[in-house]
């Protein structure tokens, strides 16, 4: 390595790391804001999440014999679809730069790789937090209006959806965080592999393959372990509000599993970004 890592800049009058980070943040935000179809992608994510949530809520009926449906989870089914768009969004935020060569401009402007990646992660987190909250709230609201019409009434022991209830609030907040973590997973993978198609293939593969494989695994123990490490199945256990003891993994622990996946992806991406010629 030609660059001794110990060398600090001659002048610190520029305002320290916080100042650097602030500027990088602002730059990343401008980049994201002006990238054209990024806003459309986020809108699509919200729309798809709500639409699929509505569709599911409309389709599932609770017959008089009773049903074991978790209404909160039902209303939030759209997250399984919306996450794909969020993943694309996160991947494009990085691979778009690699595809055009702009990453070199970015790294020339902000040579500290950690700062770049952290700033990107922070912006993505903020943006997905906002759109995810909108999507989740709209889904719950739609469920609140649609589900009672399908038999999910007090007569069948279903209260109307309300964030005032602990488990519902947990599912709502958790679903938003789930989307954020999916975005960070996408960011990490895209930083590591650079190419959009590959990155999206990997992210969607990670998300979708586990549940597909779990279906055919015949051994209950194996099945449970697979569900415990699957980023999607484990992560979405945060949406459960009933029969918690039957889940392969608890709600927060499940979200933690996804967080570990995202952190691992970011770590690998960050290391490669450091090591690799741009």
């Amino acid at each position: 390595m030609s660059l001794p890592s110990g060398v600090r800049p001659a002048s610190t009058a520029d305002g320290g790391w916080v100042g650097d980070f602030g500027r990088a943040l602002r730059a990343e935000w401008t980049k994201l804001r002006t990238a054209g179809d990024m806003g459309r992608l986020l809108l699509l994510a919200v729309a798809l999440t709500v639409a699929v949530g509505c569709g599911t809520a409309k389709a599932v009926k609770c017959p008089d014999v009773g049903c074991g449906q978790d209404v909160v989870r039902l209303a939030l089914t759209g997250v399984t679809v919306g996450q794909a768009v969020i993943a694309v969004f996160a991947v494009l935020a990085v691979s778009g730069e690699y595809g055009t060569g702009m990453i070199r401009t970015t790294l020339a402007a902000v040579p500290n790789r950690t700062t770049v990646l952290t700033a990107k992660a922070a912006i993505l987190t903020t943006v997905v937090l906002a759109s995810g909250t909108a999507a989740v709230l709209a889904s719950l609201l739609a469920g609140r209006y649609i589900l009672p019409g399908n038999g999910f009434t007090e007569a069948h022991d279903y209260a109307s959806l309300s964030l005032a209830e602990g488990p519902t609030l947990r599912a709502a907040v958790g679903s938003v965080l789930y989307l954020v973590l999916i975005a960070l997973l996408g960011l990490g993978v895209a930083t590591a592999v650079r190419e959009a198609a590959t990155a999206i293939g990997i992210v969607l593969g990670l998300l979708y393959l586990f549940p597909v494989v779990t279906r055919v695994v015949n051994d209950p123990e194996w099945q449970r372990h697979l569900q415990q490490i699957s980023p999607m199945t484990a992560g979405l256990s945060i949406q459960a509000t009933i029969h918690l003891d039957e889940l392969p993994i608890g709600p927060w622990a499940g979200l933690g599993v996804l967080a570990v996946w995202a952190a691992a992806a970011l770590l690998v991406g960050g290391l490669l970004l450091h090591r690799r010629d741009a």
Binding site: R23, A24, R26, A27, E28, W29, T30, K31, T34, A35, G36, D37, G96, E97, T100, G101, M102, R104, T105, T106, A109, V110
Partner: peptide, 18 residues
């Protein structure tokens, strides 16, 4: 080395902020 969907001014703008 820029993203084609962004206007020139916006490209310079994010660089300026950085």
């Amino acid at each position: 080395a820029f993203q084609p969907s962004r206007t020139a001014r916006n490209h310079l703008l994010w660089l300026a902020y950085s």
